[in-house]
């Protein structure tokens, strides 16, 4: 009996690495894309999202050793829209690259343009686009479809289609919740990251530019006070990251209702993309309902 058990153990020990090697290796630049890949591929893929929790994946430049790992992946899922722009500054295998916002490039939101010149080169304008596209859950559903299409190169299409239908149904449910959000007053946010949520919901979301998770400085509070003079009807303030106690107190003292609307760039400490977004939307809905 012991011999059989030993043989069986050895067999599995030998087989496990081979099975792992057969799984699709996927690297992503954001947590939402990792979540979509995990939902769609299940155990058939190894999904890696290597950005450290204390770094903003939109601007993080991976160490070269990590970029070498990306180069070895079967699929590299990009958000596009200028998110993780290091991906344009390294040789990544074209066959593995999937720009998940390519299909809706014409619907990206332009955020700023800078006009200047380089010596005698003449004036020219640089455009920038908002990058957190998944906060419009219709666009997130299109990203999921792009991931699914890429996965079909490696995995049975029927399985992927079934998982995609379930995922898109969940995203549509979130979208319906977004469409119920109403407010005649503008909202204020701690950072300009909610452009796609605003466009889809019809809410007006203005913003300051405060570093995530830090207590604002005196001058930053003064800038907020100036904005509140400009928009006295504002009642709801969105935090992109969990605020410090002092920061939260400062918002409440100004008569605002604070909502931590997590962008989900990173894997949440509890739950997943879907539960985190449900929590965000429930908190926002409640704040809007209770606003005078």
């Amino acid at each position: 009996m012991k011999t059989w058990f030993l043989c069986l153990s050895l067999f599995w020990w030998a087989l496990t690495p081979a099975l792992a090697q057969d799984r699709v290796t996927i690297y992503t630049v954001s947590y939402p894309l990792a979540y979509f890949a995990e939902r769609l591929a299940g155990d058939e893929a190894r999904v890696f999202f290597p950005a450290p929790q204390d770094r903003d994946p939109a601007f993080w430049r991976p160490p070269i050793a990590v970029i070498a790992d990306y180069q070895e992946a079967d699929l590299i899922l990009l958000n596009g829209a200028g998110y993780a722009d290091w991906t344009a500054n390294a040789s990544l295998p074209r066959a593995a690259l999937v720009d998940t916002s390519r299909a809706f490039r014409s619907r990206l939101i332009e955020t700023e343009s800078i006009t200047h010149s380089h010596g005698g080169d003449g004036e020219h304008t640089h455009a920038a686009v908002a990058s957190h596209v998944w906060l419009d859950f219709q666009l997130a559903a299109e990203q999921a479809e792009a991931v699914a299409d890429a996965l079909k190169r490696f995995l049975p299409a029927e399985k992927i289609e079934a998982e995609l239908s379930a995922l898109q149904a969940d995203l549509n449910r979130l979208d319906q919740q977004v469409m119920k959000l109403t407010s005649s007053a503008p909202l204020l946010a701690s950072h300009p990251r909610y452009q796609y949520l605003a466009r889809r919901s019809g809410l007006t979301i203005e913003s300051v530019e405060w570093p995530a998770g830090e207590t604002p400085t005196e001058s930053q509070w003064q800038a907020l006070d100036a904005l509140l003079v400009q928009w006295p009807q504002v009642r709801v303030f969105l935090w992109e990251a969990e605020p410090t106690a002092d920061a939260q107190r400062g918002i409440v003292e100004r008569g605002l209702t604070a909502v931590w609307f997590d962008l989900a760039d990173h894997r949440p400490a509890e739950g997943d993309f879907m539960t985190r977004m449900e929590k965000n939307l429930n908190a926002l809905q409640q704040a809007l309902d209770e606003a005078p």
């Binding site: 070269i64 070498a68 180069q71 290091w86 500054n89 040789s91």
Partner: peptide
Amino acid sequence: GHDGYWILTPAD
């Protein structure tokens, strides 16, 4: 503020 970079991995 004008700069750019390129990364070469050992494999490259």
